[in-house]
Nucleic acid binder design. Structure first.
Lengths: 352, 352
DNA sequence: GTGAAAGCGCTAACAA
DNA sequence: TTGTTAGCGCTTTCAC
């Protein structure tokens, strides 16, 4: 009977039962070639002695850590938490543990996390880039080691990278088209950073929808956001109003910035959506709490997380991890009061 | 020159430079007793060959994984992300990597995560319990192994457990006192589960503040929330209104539920705060986006995360990890429009 | 300042 | 069905 504080290992179990360590190992792993009687004995003793397997040793030996590294820019708002949830759901089903890291939108932290994950011998890395990531050498490092690398949402425009993205272009196109159909003709866009695929595509969708409907693209109507938060939207909207440009709608690349814009509109006595329509992007929960409720685009966060894991699992089977596969998810336009420029607001009641 | 795909180890470095593996190990760890010249050589070659240390091996051998396990109920809303941020900040400064796990408010997942973390040989575990956790055996398992265990926010009422909590009692007391000072006399409370310390204490603070100010505690004014979200608040508020009980204020144990209550009030034509004051708890970002802005209590999330890590680091130094130390953080009352029952709403403008 | 050697706890050939 | 054996890559005494 093992006494003292020493943590017990399969050797202790082996000694106690008179089996070899390999039999113990096999029994604990429920291998096919161990008799049920033996398994029962081993499991009983393991339970009794409170045996705790050591993954470090198993991983070191087997070369598989069953750990999945995930790097997200942040976990504020609803989107990235939803993605993470989707990732964890599918990953744990596939027997993987997930290590979540936040880059806090800093490329240096992103690099550090990549390094830490590699040192920890993760079996794969899922990344959504920080918005300060301009070179991609640290990602190459992962690929060079033959470790599956999957991007989600924010991915670099490089050949042969795998990833799952939302069709941001389509989402923005649909929002803009919707605003046009509501009778809006002077639609402003609060734009995110153009070096990121997501916000670049949102801008493109806006641009193309205008042209497709015979409206001019006016650069004066496009205001870059200093940040994606409320105060970014406040500043951009103030700038827009101060410029005295004609305006009957605003499409913000982010919901939080849209909330800031809404605040400025309210303070300026502008009626939303009657005088000015408004739409955001992300379908944050607060969009149904503010008045008027905010029209937005759902980003399918959970689905994206699941798709990313699926892609990873696929890559794991292959020898070449540079297949350049992409999964593109369809966005969902959520029409709410804030964009019903040309209709009675009641119409949206059922769609909230 | 190592060629091929084989990952290189300290043995390769040793062979290449003609040193022993121990010297390489020491050099890489920047040990005091290796000559600078040797270190320089080793580092240069490591860089050149793209050497990647293997933490699994190091941890297995040294017995320290430098990993910290964190279990949170979820990462929705602003509070837990803030805590996680605080944890990561301090932990990474102390050289620890953080594994974040979500229990999704399910005690079974909590147990699984505890197990996974123990198998991964983490050096410590930080937990905020799920709201379905009623027995604490899985936590005992951690302590029995001598692994530092620190709770935050939601902790069990057990002897000798360490943790950092907000003074929820004080926060609720302050909110209630504030409402009373605004002239409210019939203050309802939308209550969270009473088996959790946090919501129990919020209820107590409410209770005691009433009595301390000569107001009766009326059980009919206390409505249990089915959940902490918007629809929980909607249901509870409807119940309250349908009961036709006299009412001039509502204090919700959660901001999201308060948002739901606000919605019901608006739909019922109740003027907030003139006819009915409202306050929540958590200081979610959306509290400043809704109209009227929501009075709330800030939970000091980031500070709590940092304090939890500090407690962990303290515990790490000791042999007895059952010291029962507690850190109690002071809440911050955030007075906004929704509770200015007895004043002109403008007064709050500066305090938002 | 450096080397030799043992071993952390486990897995996975290969034998029997 | 079970045992033997050889490490996975690193740290860490104990020598020299």
């Amino acid at each position: 009977m093992a006494k003292g504080k020493k943590r017990i290992s399969i050797h202790d179990l082996a000694a106690e039962l008179g089996f070899s360590v390999s039999t113990i190992s096999r029994a604990l792993n429920n291998a096919i070639d161990v008799s049920d009687a033996t398994k029962a004995q081993v499991w009983a003793l393991a339970e009794k002695l409170n045996y705790q397997p050591n993954n470090l040793a198993a991983s070191l030996r087997s070369g598989r850590s069953n750990m999945l590294g995930v790097i997200v820019p942040h976990i504020n708002g609803a989107f990235f938490p939803a993605v993470v949830h989707g990732i964890e759901k599918l990953a744990s089903k596939a027997g993987f543990n997930v290590m979540i890291c936040q880059s806090s939108e800093e490329v240096d932290r992103e690099k550090k996390h990549i390094n830490a994950l590699l040192k920890a011998q993760v079996d794969g890395v899922l990344v959504s880039m920080s918005n300060t990531t301009l070179d991609f050498a640290h990602f190459e490092q992962v690929r060079r080691k033959g470790i599956p690398l999957v991007f989600f949402d924010r991915m670099p425009e490089l050949p042969n990278v795998c990833g799952v993205v939302l069709d941001d272009y389509l989402g923005a196109y649909q929002v803009t088209k919707h605003l046009i159909e509501q009778g809006c003709r002077r639609i402003a866009h609060l734009a995110g950073p153009q070096h990121l695929n997501i916000t670049f595509n949102r801008h493109q969708g806006y641009h193309d929808a205008l042209l497709a409907h015979g409206l001019p693209y006016d650069a004066a109507l496009v205001v870059p956001l200093a940040n994606s938060r409320e105060n970014g939207g406040v500043a951009a909207m103030r700038h827009l109003l101060e410029s005295n440009i004609q305006l009957d709608a605003v499409f913000s690349a982010y919901d939080f910035a849209a909330a800031g814009a809404l605040q400025v509109m309210m303070e300026s006595g502008i009626q939303v959506p009657k005088t000015m329509a408004l739409a955001g992007f992300s379908n944050e929960p607060f969009t149904t709490m503010v008045r008027p409720r905010l029209t937005s685009v759902d980003q399918r966060g959970e689905l994206m997380g699941e798709a990313a894991v699926q892609l990873f699992l696929q890559l794991l089977k292959r020898t070449d991890t540079f297949t350049g596969q992409r999964i593109v998810l369809k966005p969902m336009l959520m029409v709410r009061d804030s964009s019903l420029h040309g209709q009675l607001a009641q119409t949206a009641k059922n769609q909230q």
